[in-house]
């Protein structure tokens, strides 16, 4: 291995086509997840994302058995489950949280049971669950490009509506905006991001890519427009660095990227300028000293 300052260190891995495709996929998925993740974090849809990724798993297995497009099947199944959660959570007073819990475990169990019937397989379970960005096909890569373009377009066009429904759903409804439509769009974006990121970090870890950069960005800024760009920047740092480390150290790339995002989030918690643990500690200390002085 060359020195860390030598450009060749970074260029050498890129002579392999799998690494080129992998890097491109990571960059695209990072942008997509950070963009959608910002709204997911603000609207508090983390658990919905969790449910969707389980539904995606069942969707992949079912569409494999039926011989359709894996991604298409996964997407449809995820959206159906999201819709059912909304309906049932509201109806029987069992709470959305519990409704989500029931649905995602049910659909995941369905996926596991059906996997038994897929003799020669939806590769193996570990690949679905942990992803394999270096095995991404050229077709999937083009599909990812298209999804990212669509997401950027939608967020660009309907930024103001998305902000409104994530911040204040009640006001949005009062202003005559159809909550169903805009929330629905957010859910579609969420499903798209999850499906696309599937391949990179796998079904089990995909939520981290969505949540960690956006949450870290939230700690660093109070403004939404900044938050999106900071989230994208952080996601790119974690994604690209993670991929290289995985390559050099021969580690699985998905978990490496997720662990790095987690480290960034931890650093954010400690050192964020207004709310970081370190900052708060010093401020509280100063306050206590001041009030002791006043009391004396």
């Amino acid at each position: 291995m060359n020195g860390l300052l030598d450009p060749a260190t970074y260029l050498q891995p890129l002579q392999y086509p799998f690494m080129q495709r992998g890097l491109l996929a990571v960059v695209l998925v990072s942008i997509l997840c950070a963009l959608v993740g910002t709204f997911v974090v603000l609207r508090g849809l983390a658990f919905m994302g969790e449910a969707m990724r389980h539904a995606l798993f069942a969707g992949v297995v079912i569409s494999f058995l039926l011989g359709g497009s894996l991604i298409g099947g996964a997407l449809i199944f995820a959206l159906v489950v999201a819709w059912l959660i909304g309906v049932i959570g509201r109806r029987q007073g069992i709470g959305e949280d519990t409704a989500i819990g029931v649905f995602f475990s049910g659909s995941f169990a369905l996926g596991i049971v059906l996997l038994n019937f897929a003799q020669s397989g939806v590769s193996d379970l570990a690949t679905i669950l942990l992803g394999n960005v270096l095995g991404i096909s050229t077709f999937d890569l083009w599909l990812t490009v298209a999804v990212v373009a669509l997401a950027v377009l939608l967020v660009g066009l309907f930024y103001k509506e998305l902000v409104l429904v994530s911040f204040d759903p009640a006001l949005a409804a009062a202003q005559g905006r159809s909550l169903l439509a805009w929330d629905g769009m957010l859910l579609v974006l969420l499903a798209l991001a999850l499906t696309t990121a599937f391949q990179t970090v796998g079904n089990l870890l995909v939520l981290a890519l969505l949540l960690a950069p956006a949450a870290t960005a939230r700690l660093l800024t109070q403004r939404l427009s900044n938050m999106i760009f900071i989230a994208i920047g952080l996601a790119l740092i974690a994604g690209v660095t993670g991929l290289y480390i995985a390559y050099w150290r021969n580690l699985p790339p998905g978990p490496t990227i997720v662990l790095l995002s987690g480290v960034l989030f931890g650093l954010g918690l400690l050192f964020a300028p207004r709310t970081g643990v370190v900052q708060t500690f010093w401020q509280r200390r100063r306050l206590r000293q001041q009030s002791h002085k006043r009391a004396a």
Partner: peptide, 24 residues
């Protein structure tokens, strides 16, 4: 406890990162 981070977001980040650690 951080006001900017919802509990559900914290949960989502924690378990995925922990799982990634286990997988590594």
């Amino acid at each position: 406890r951080q006001r900017q981070i919802r509990e559900s977001t914290a949960i989502g980040i924690f378990y995925t990162v922990a799982f990634a650690l286990g997988a590594l």
